[in-house]
Design a protein around this nucleic acid. Structure first.
Lengths: 125, 125, 125, 125
DNA sequence: GTGGTCTAGACCACA
DNA sequence: GTGGTCTAGACCACG
């Protein structure tokens, strides 16, 4: 069962995001082996080259380490998980607040909007 | 002096965003005439094709109306402004909350994050 | 006439090195347009994808900027040239000295070796 | 405790370099027996295949000799040590000078760079 | 078997 | 026309 991808963002990047999410949420652990390029390609229903690029990106970010001939592994640096979580969180919040202000909302309105939206989705669940 | 654009998002889309923002904030009024494609292109320092696309996109959204031979005008439907604001706002909040949850934050943590970030940027100003 | 490539290093990387060298030596100027991906591919006798990767690497290094639909340009930041030169130079010297020491040469011997080698190639020219 | 290896260069080659260095510096002597492939593999924390390749490479260079059923030994040819040292040295210097010239430095600048770098690392020690 | 590079050829969004 | 992404398929060095 291959996941579907959005058309607006590169597939290799979406897969990278997914792996980072899994890592940050604790579903992937430091030092854990990732599927090989070829295997992950099959699992994801994409070309091996695309996964290659995904792994390359993640390595550049320091999220992943490749050991020659052995495979690709989540970094063993434990702080990386917290760092990633913190960085992503900060980035998202600041982008969000800036966007909300750009359409003319003041801080109180932003605060209220989030609050109500959280409550609303609470009722749904 | 042409405004600078981010490289990550299409320029035509960034300009569309800017126009919507100005409309929602009341800097552009219903029925107001927008600069011609050529003039806007010069003002923004981009290719006229790009503005053409921007106006097309805005028309598709119902934000703008093109009157043959007269030019492009902000829609005269007064409720559009509120609708836009509401839609954009809702979309942004939901996307934001989903993103925050995807990295494993619960509602309380999301709430606290936003709160703290608002306070922090308060101190700066 | 396409240049020949060494087998030991990725082609995309060798081409990137060549561009950096030309930039540092002043044969390419800040803001100058590089050949399009396709054109450079033909000039270099390689596949366009390979050049794409070269340009991608250079952009990550900040040596090059791509403008959507217009092409790829050498960065306009003037300091970049000096920075690159300095960085590369430092890296090469330190690696060289470390290597020479690792085979047991002391500083005086390193110094003399370089000196003699410089004189020798002087006579040749 | 296994030594760490750089990711940029083949491990078998790094180990070969290390052995050559030890030989040139006199830490390994002509005719001296090297650890068996298996033992060396354990010591270095790598796959036996990798050491096999290292020894093969060294044999190709004439640095070691494999005696069937007895093991691998440093060559007994005394002049090999000097030859190696000289060859390596020459190769490194010429590669270094060529690289420095390729970024536009003239001989005087190369000379000065080395000189200053040597002095600098002198102060540190 | 593993990752890394390269080619050939295609399609797309953007300016 | 420009860069960007993706696929299919191949070859290679490495462990």
């Amino acid at each position: 069962m291959s996941a579907e991808f959005k058309t607006s963002k590169p597939i290799y990047s979406q897969i990278a995001d997914r792996i980072i999410q899994q890592f940050v949420r604790g579903e992937l652990h430091p030092g854990e082996k990732l599927p090989s390029v070829r295997e992950m390609a099959i699992q994801s229903g994409v070309n091996p080259n695309t996964i290659q690029r995904t792994y390359g990106e993640l390595e550049r970010l320091g999220v992943v380490e490749t050991k020659r001939g052995q495979g690709t592994f989540m970094t063993e640096q434990n702080e990386m998980k917290l760092k990633l979580r913190h960085d992503i969180q900060k980035e998202m919040i600041e982008a969000f607040i800036e966007s909300m202000r750009s359409i003319g909302l003041n801080d109180h309105e932003i605060y209220e909007s989030v609050n109500q939206s959280l409550k609303r989705s609470d009722h749904e669940s």
